[in-house]
């Protein structure tokens, strides 16, 4: 056998990964460097004009009140939606770990099927539910006599938050599901035998065990919510904007690539900082709960 074929099959070497590494260098690293660079030079029609490095674009973006307002909105919308997702996800994952048979399968289908459906379709579903006078929710509330005027549901922060929470919910459920169904139940039995109630056992035994999974889910859902521009655009309406929406509009609609590059860099950097803080907080907390137990 050819020695090269043998090395591939035997494993051991670095080089089976070489094509993937080369591919990522050319189509991820170089594009990211270009993106970064475009924020610090002046561009006209996709070409760099007079290659002088300037901080002027970054400076003007950071000095813009509007950008700060939009970044703040991106942040609080993502935070609220992430916390809501955790509150909804935990009981589902816990229920999954406590049941068996057909219920387990049904829960899995409910959690995984949205992942296989496009985010656009799911956002569209929320347009149908929340949209205007004929929206499903308004119609139902009117028929039940709970309201007598249609509520303004679409084009609000809450429409965006609800949509995002639902769309990102599986990302929160899946890590929890894995940890909770694989957990060691003898600890809970011990706690129960020592006289702790179910709620107390849950908060002092089950939750501390799942701290790493909780924070993995929080970091993931925060990141995808913070950088989502489809949901704010469709459920927030034409005049609603966030930092991510602004990146899209500057790049595709206004065609101000310098601004787009600067804002994308700000978006990505701030996202990394927040995710780092969440992960760091998580490992702190899990160390703390280990010491305590």
């Amino acid at each position: 056998m050819h020695p090269v074929v043998r090395r591939v099959l035997h494993g051991g070497g670095f080089w089976p990964a070489l094509p993937a590494v080369a591919f990522l260098v050319v189509f991820l690293v170089l594009p990211m460097l270009t993106l970064l660079a475009f924020g610090f030079v002046t561009i006209e029609r996709g070409r760099i004009v007079g290659d002088t490095f300037t901080l002027q674009h970054l400076h003007s973006a950071l000095g813009d009140q509007l950008i700060w307002r939009l970044a703040w909105r991106s942040f609080y919308v993502a935070v609220i939606s992430t916390v809501l997702a955790l509150v909804l996800a935990y009981p589902v994952a816990y229920l999954f770990s406590q049941t068996s048979g057909i219920w387990r399968t049904l829960i899995l289908i409910a959690v995984i099927s949205p992942l296989l459906t496009s985010a656009l379709v799911r956002t569209y579903a929320w347009l149908v539910i929340l949209g205007g006078r004929r929206g499903l929710l308004n119609q139902t509330l009117l028929q039940l006599g709970l309201i007598d005027q249609p509520l303004r549901l679409l084009n609000t922060d809450w429409a965006v938050i609800i949509g995002m929470t639902q769309i990102h919910l599986p990302f929160m459920i899946l890590p929890l599901l894995a940890v909770l169904s694989g957990r060691d139940r003898r600890l809970e039995e011990a706690a129960r035998n020592l006289g702790a109630g179910r709620v107390r056992t849950f908060f002092t035994v089950v939750v501390p065990m799942s701290v790493p999974a909780i924070f993995a889910g929080l970091a993931l859902v925060f990141a995808v919510s913070y950088t989502n521009f489809i949901v704010p655009q469709l459920l927030g309406g034409g005049s609603y904007s966030t930092l991510a929406v602004q990146v899209y509009e500057q790049t595709v609609v206004v065609l101000d690539w310098t601004r787009g590059a600067v804002l994308a860099t700000i978006l990505l950097t701030s996202c990394f900082v927040f995710v780092y803080l969440i992960v760091a907080g998580g490992s702190r907390l899990s160390r703390w709960s280990e010491i305590r137990t």
């Binding site: 590494v21 991820l28 594009p31 475009f38 996709g46 950088t227 899209y248």
Partner: peptide
């Protein structure tokens, strides 16, 4: 190898667009 999963789709899209233009 797993680095791209840290990148939002939008950022990958824009970066590729800019790199292509360059």
């Amino acid at each position: 190898l797993l680095a791209p999963q840290m990148m939002p789709g939008m950022v990958i899209g824009i970066a590729t667009l800019f790199f292509g233009a360059y």
